[in-house]
C-alpha cells in the first residue's frame, strides 16, 4: 500500500470526504451496495450517499424497512456470496438491534469457515453526544464492539483520515465498524481529490510533545488539541495521539510516546468501565510500567444515559476545559 498523499489545499467536509471515497469505490467495484433507511433517493440523513442513487439505482442504493437485525443479517449473507455491503445505520444506536447478527455471525464467519469465506461488510453510523439528540441518538459503543474478535473498529477525527480509512475499509475483506462523530460531520479540512488508503492499526501523532501523552479518539482529539494549545502557552509540551482505529490498536505508538513523556491520560467520550481507556491503562501497566512517572489517568463520559438538555449534555462528556484540568492534574503528580 503506498503512503497516503499530502493533504494539498482543497478543503472538504468529513461527510464529503467519505462520500467521495464511497462514490469512487462504487464506480470501480460493482459488488458494492449500500443499505439503510433513507439512503436511496434521499441521499442519507447525513448526506452520506448524496447523488449516488441517481448514478447506481435502487438495487445498489437500497432503502430498507426499519429492521436493523434483518438487513445486517442479510448483509452477512451477501458478503458470504460475493458482494460487498455497506450498511448505513444513520445513528449508530440502531446497530444494537443487530448485535447478535454482528457478534455471532458477521464477526465469527471467517474463523468458522476456516478462512474460506470472507466478510467484506462495512457498518457505518453517526456516534456521539451533541445536538440534543438525547439518549437513543447519542451512543458510541466503540468499546463494546472492540471487545469482539473479528471486527475492525474505526473512529476518524478528520476528513483526511476519514477518506483514507473509508477507502481502506472498502478494500479490506474483514467486517469494519466505521464510527462518525455527529459533531465532526460538517467539519472541514484539506483532503486530496485522488483516492488513497490509510491502513488500520496506525495511529496519528496529532501533536508532538515531551511532558505528557494524551490518547484521544474522534471528537475528543480536537478538544484535547485545544487544551494542549492552551497549555503550550504556559510552557507545557503535550503529545496528542489519535489511534484512529481501536481494533486493531497501534499500541506501539502509545507505548513509545509514554517512554518519552512518562505520563499518560486517555480521553474517551464513551463510558469508562471495561472500556477503551481501561484497556490502554492496563496494557501500559503491563508493558510500560517502568516508563511511568505517574499513574495512568482516564477521562470518560459519565457512566449514565445521555440527557437531552444542552447544559446536561455538556456535563456528561469531556470538553476542552475538563481535559485541560485532567492534564494539569497529571502534570502535578
Amino acid at each position: 500500500m503506498p503512503d497516503p498523499p499530502e493533504p494539498g489545499d482543497r478543503e472538504t467536509t468529513f461527510v464529503g470526504a467519505t462520500l467521495e471515497a464511497l462514490a469512487f469505490e462504487m464506480k470501480r467495484n460493482p459488488a458494492i451496495f449500500v443499505m439503510g433507511e433513507g439512503i436511496g433517493q434521499r441521499g442519507g440523513n447525513f448526506g452520506t450517499t448524496l447523488g449516488l442513487y441517481e448514478e447506481h439505482g435502487a438495487t445498489r442504493l437500497c432503502d430498507t424497512p426499519i429492521c436493523e437485525r434483518g438487513f445486517v443479517g442479510l448483509g452477512c449473507g451477501a458478503a458470504m456470496t460475493g458482494s460487498r455491503p455497506v450498511i448505513d445505520f444513520m445513528f449508530i444506536d440502531f446497530i444494537n438491534d443487530a448485535f447478535g447478527e454482528i457478534v455471532n455471525q458477521v464477526a465469527k464467519m471467517q474463523y468458522m469457515s476456516s478462512g474460506r469465506l470472507k466478510m467484506p461488510i462495512l457498518l457505518r453510523g453517526c456516534i456521539g453526544v451533541g445536538h440534543s439528540a438525547a439518549t437513543h441518538h447519542s451512543g458510541n459503543y466503540a468499546s463494546i464492539y472492540s471487545h469482539i474478535p473479528g471486527i475492525r473498529v474505526v473512529l476518524p477525527s478528520t476528513p483526511y483520515d476519514a477518506k483514507g480509512l473509508f477507502h481502506h475499509a472498502l478494500r479490506c475483506d474483514d467486517p469494519v465498524l466505521f464510527l462518525e462523530h455527529r459533531e465532526l460531520m460538517a467539519t472541514r479540512s484539506c483532503v486530496p481529490e485522488t483516492d488513497y488508503e490509510i491502513p488500520f492499526g496506525q495511529a496519528r501523532v496529532a501533536r508532538e510533545g515531551t511532558d505528557a501523552t494524551v490518547v484521544a479518539l474522534s471528537l475528543m482529539v480536537h478538544h484535547t488539541l485545544a487544551a494542549a494549545e492552551k497549555l503550550a502557552g504556559e510552557g507545557q509540551s503535550i503529545e496528542v495521539i489519535d489511534p484512529r482505529t481501536v481494533s486493531p490498536l497501534d499500541f506501539d505508538t502509545i507505548l513509545g510516546s509514554v517512554a518519552k513523556t512518562g505520563r499518560l491520560l486517555v480521553v474517551d467520550e464513551a463510558f469508562g468501565p471495561c472500556g477503551f481507556a481501561s484497556e490502554i491503562a492496563a496494557r501500559v501497566a503491563d508493558e510500560g510500567f517502568d516508563e511511568l512517572d505517574a499513574p495512568v489517568r482516564r477521562l470518560n463520559g459519565a457512566h449514565a444515559p445521555v440527557p437531552y438538555s444542552p447544559t446536561l449534555e455538556q456535563a456528561v462528556v469531556p470538553g476542552a476545559d475538563t481535559i485541560e484540568a485532567a492534564i494539569r492534574a497529571l502534570l502535578e503528580e
Binding site: 443479517g73 449473507g77 451477501a78 456470496t81 458482494s83
Partner: peptide, 15 residues
C-alpha cells in the same frame, strides 16, 4: 440467522 443470510445470498445473486 440462516433465514436472513439466505436473503443476503439472494441479494447477491440479484445484484
Amino acid at each position: 440467522p440462516c433465514i436472513l443470510q439466505a436473503c443476503g445470498g439472494g441479494y447477491s445473486f440479484k445484484l
